[in-house]
Design a protein around this nucleic acid. Structure first.
Lengths: 234, 234
DNA sequence: GTCTATAGTGCGATAGAC
DNA sequence: GTCTATCGCACTATAGAC
């Protein structure tokens, strides 16, 4: 049986391709290589290999020689796609966060029912973090290696998503649907629960908790915290 | 006015000293330096400086030259307290986790009221993570740099604390006090909320959320999730 | 018990062949 | 476009003076 998550996966198959294409379109001026197909293939390889190695030993510990060996590309080839190790870090953050933010923003688009909107953003966030588990972990763990000016990228993304949730909660509170008093703290709490899924993946895997089970539990918990009585429509 | 947290701080002033003394007692055979006072002073300096630098740039990025400069100790002096950079990492994890676990275990000792026990462990965890913020962050961020055999130290500590919470929830459920069905997921949720306080310290600081406010919100939220009706005693 | 000086290693980055 | 060879540097770790 196809689960809800399977459907989401099918609708969003080309995530890494999106990241790579964004990069290619933005860098065409400065990039030495002009063939899109070549850039796409190698860049996807580089990014995926970097994410895998970083999840095991961390970005700083990973040497470019490790990356060269694991990706099958020579040191020279690597340097045609980024200008320094720091640049590679920046690329992953910038274009990764951009893609994630765009998908999450789209997830609630056109939904008018407040509570349904809340459920949609929670589900989209959880599913996306599952599909892009290595990316989400990377954003969280490697931010401190960015130069100061670049650190605001993941920070602002965190605040943006949280603000989307705050807005929904505020809307529900003013409509008398939610009784929660502090919508900002409630939104932080929701973010913390969503984040726990990918930060503690080892724990949930070991216990064989499926993503659907986790989603149900999170939604129930959120409702317990923010809902007094549900409207007749739900 | 002295807050609840101020009282907790006074009762647990000597945390880093405890870690250092544990280390000294356990290493006296292998340690070159024999004077306890000297070891305590320098080790505390080394550990604190390491935690500060790691919180800014990460343990791997921090060079021992950085540590030497910031602590005021020479490279040679550093190497009389640990045998390699990896050893330093291990020391912080091992003795730090040991101290934290002992304090948390003591926090619920002798409390017979189930719900009060839950509130005590939540409060102790939150307050302790505030006092040892750099330590808790270090445990979380630097675990992957440990050699495989040593990684179970922080992992088991996470599971231990969670099990304490599971036991309390299970006790309450069987007594008819709590209606929560999945006590394990509920305990994970509580841990996630506690962890968010120190992982996202920048966010809560910026918003001027005090630790007392956060504690109240977390306790209320937990109660909303697990409680049906409170007993007459509470 | 702490220092300075240095040995030895592996890194990021690049130049030039193909 | 991709490769190999190599430069210069910063690192961990240690040896020997004080």
């Amino acid at each position: 049986m196809a689960t809800d998550f399977d459907r989401f996966k099918k609708e969003n198959q080309l995530l890494v391709e999106t990241v790579c294409r964004d990069f290619f379109n933005n860098s065409q001026g400065s990039l030495k290589i002009k063939k899109e197909a070549v850039v796409m293939k190698n860049l996807e390889n580089i990014l995926n290999t970097t994410l895998v190695l970083s999840s095991k030993i961390g970005f700083q510990t990973m040497s470019l020689r490790d990356l060269s060996r694991e990706s099958g590309l020579s040191m020279g080839a690597l340097y045609t796609y980024f200008s320094s190790k720091d640049d590679l870090l920046r690329i992953i953050h910038r274009y990764g966060v951009q893609t994630v933010t765009a998908i999450l923003a789209k997830a609630v688009e056109g939904e008018s029912d407040t509570h349904e909107k809340l459920r949609k953003i929670v589900r989209a966030h959880l599913y996306l973090s599952e599909m892009m588990q290595l990316w989400f972990n990377f954003f969280f763990m490697e931010t401190k290696n960015l130069k100061h000016e670049e650190r605001k990228i993941p920070t602002e993304s965190e605040l943006f998503t949280e603000q989307v949730i705050v807005d929904i909660l505020e809307e529900g509170r003013q409509a008398g649907l939610y009784t929660v008093k502090d919508t900002m703290l409630a939104a932080s709490l929701i973010k913390a629960l969503l984040q726990d899924w990918y930060l503690k993946r080892w724990k949930y895997s070991k216990r064989k908790i499926t993503i659907e089970q986790y989603l149900s539990f999170v939604l129930e918990s959120i409702e317990a915290i923010i809902l007094s009585k549900r409207g007749t429509g739900a």
